[in-house]
Amino acid sequence: MSIDITLTVNGREINTEVSPETTLVQLLREHLLLTGTHVGCDTSQCGACTVHLDGRAVKSCTVLAVQADGSEVTTIEGIAVAGGLHPMQAAFHQCHGLQCGFCTAGMIMSAIDLVTREDDLDEATIRKGLAGNICRCTGYHNIVKAVQMAAGQMEGRGHE
């Protein structure tokens, strides 16, 4: 069985055919070659595959590509502003919020969603907000610092 879907990925309209068992992360990585999104555990625990689906952070290993039909998807490749990094990317760079870098794309996508939704971001809120993302290097301290730094710089915070 193969199903025709249309979705927007990083602002570009994609029309493609997928089999129902194709996960969103497989569509992104294997069909669209957007390999910035990683697959860590493939069991919905580590968050390395986090992307935004209609503006919300989701684990793309636990969404079927067919479920994203008609939706807007943003991956790590789609967040940089013209001529520079997204403030969250810049903050991770500046605070050394990564060691091996495997979890980083997912951390950044989760952190952007968190900062957009939460007004009052103390350390505990950030740690709770990133509970769905695991860093195998255990480098959480600088990740939290980076999110705090970016939160001070991102515009359009607390829209809810």
């Binding site: 919905s44 684990k59 769905g132």
Partner: peptide, 9 residues
């Protein structure tokens, strides 16, 4: 419940 990504789905 779960984590932020799970709660979003």
């Amino acid at each position: 419940i779960g984590d932020a990504q799970v709660r979003n789905r």
